[in-house]
């Protein structure tokens, strides 16, 4: 597989997943703003933007948050921006991805202008999650399990681990008591699975454990870190140049075991820092993957003067 194409596929995976999770995160945030009677909205908004690594000037209004993270297609941080970027990457890799996946991404981009901040945000978020599901469903049904699939999966699982970590950080926003654990579970579509697995009421430790380290639920952080590690091993030629690909696996494995072998109370006491640790591991792994698979070994530039 061409390095350039592999990189595009990796980013399609990341962008679609990011759009999906940003929609979930915003949904939770708006919900908290509505339900928390003591909320200090501007500082809650500011916390959200800083978790999403966006610059801002206080006071941050709800409208501004929605522009930056949901609707403004010119910003790379927004859902609209990431979906547009996913479509551009799909256009570059058009001959590798299936027609169905391409058309679903293209249609999504074409329908984006219909959604503006005047619409009910919740409906927009539902639509975004649905479109992401369509893309994943189609690609799962139409892609051979070769490198094309692996790179997309890799991007998707890295992004999902990273975004769930960001979502859990909302527990500790300033100016609000934060979403309760039931809300967090719901926003990860995990509430029902939790009830079936744990068979108990939602307690802080149990819920955190479920989202952090459950081995079977596809939206737990450890599940996705493990998935990314596993996928790295499946990519063709992963065994040549072991050092580079292994370093990425190392970073992911360390983050995963850190969660798995630590007492959950300990993590909860220091949740923001622990979650930042997960995000850093994902970023490091992403950089190492880029160095290993996407960057040309050396770019030959022709310079006549040098002859």
């Amino acid at each position: 597989m061409l390095s350039r194409i592999a990189e595009s596929l990796f980013w399609i995976g990341r962008y679609v997943e990011r759009a999906d999770n940003t929609a979930r995160l915003l949904d939770v945030h708006l919900n908290v703003l509505l339900e928390d009677p003591w909320v200090d909205e501007p500082s809650a908004n500011a916390s959200l933007l800083s978790v999403m690594n966006c610059t801002f000037e206080p006071p941050v209004t709800r409208h501004h948050v929605l522009e930056v993270l949901a609707f403004d297609a010119t910003r790379s941080s927004s859902i609209a921006g990431t979906l547009t970027a996913a479509r551009e990457n799909a256009r570059r890799a058009r001959e590798v991805i299936s027609t169905e996946v391409w058309e679903s991404l293209n249609m999504t981009r074409n329908q984006l202008p219909r959604w503006t901040s005047s619409a009910r945000p919740h409906e927009y978020f539902v639509w975004v999650r649905e479109r992401a599901a369509v893309v994943w469903g189609l690609s799962s049904a139409t892609t051979s399990r070769d490198d094309a699939w692996h790179f997309m999966e890799l991007g998707r699982s890295l992004e999902r681990a990273d975004m769930i970590a960001r979502l859990l950080m909302t527990r500790h926003f300033e100016g609000t008591t934060g979403p309760n654990w039931t809300t967090l579970l719901r926003s990860c579509s995990a509430h029902e699975a939790y009830l079936r697995t744990v068979r108990a009421l939602v307690t802080e430790e149990r819920a955190a454990e479920f989202l952090l380290i459950d081995r079977l639920f596809p939206r737990s952080i450890a599940y996705n870190l493990a998935k990314a590690e596993e996928t790295l091993g499946l990519i063709e030629g992963a065994s040549n140049n072991k050092a580079m690909s292994d370093r990425a696996r190392l970073a992911l494995g360390r983050a995963r075991t850190n969660l798995e072998y630590r007492d959950v109370r300990e993590i909860l006491n220091n949740l923001p820092e622990q979650m930042r640790e997960v995000q850093r591991a994902c970023a490091l792994a992403s950089d190492l993957i880029r160095d290993r698979y996407f960057l040309p070994a050396s770019t030959v530039l022709w310079n006549q003067e040098a002859l």
Partner: peptide, 28 residues
């Protein structure tokens, strides 16, 4: 490229060594 089932490359994906042309892939 798609209907022929071949790769679509850009100039930066290609390199020449010893009079042969290669493309850069994830597996070398």
């Amino acid at each position: 490229a798609r209907t022929m089932g071949v790769e679509l490359v850009e100039g930066r994906d290609l390199e020449c060594h010893n009079g042969r042309v290669y493309m850069r892939t994830t597996a070398g």
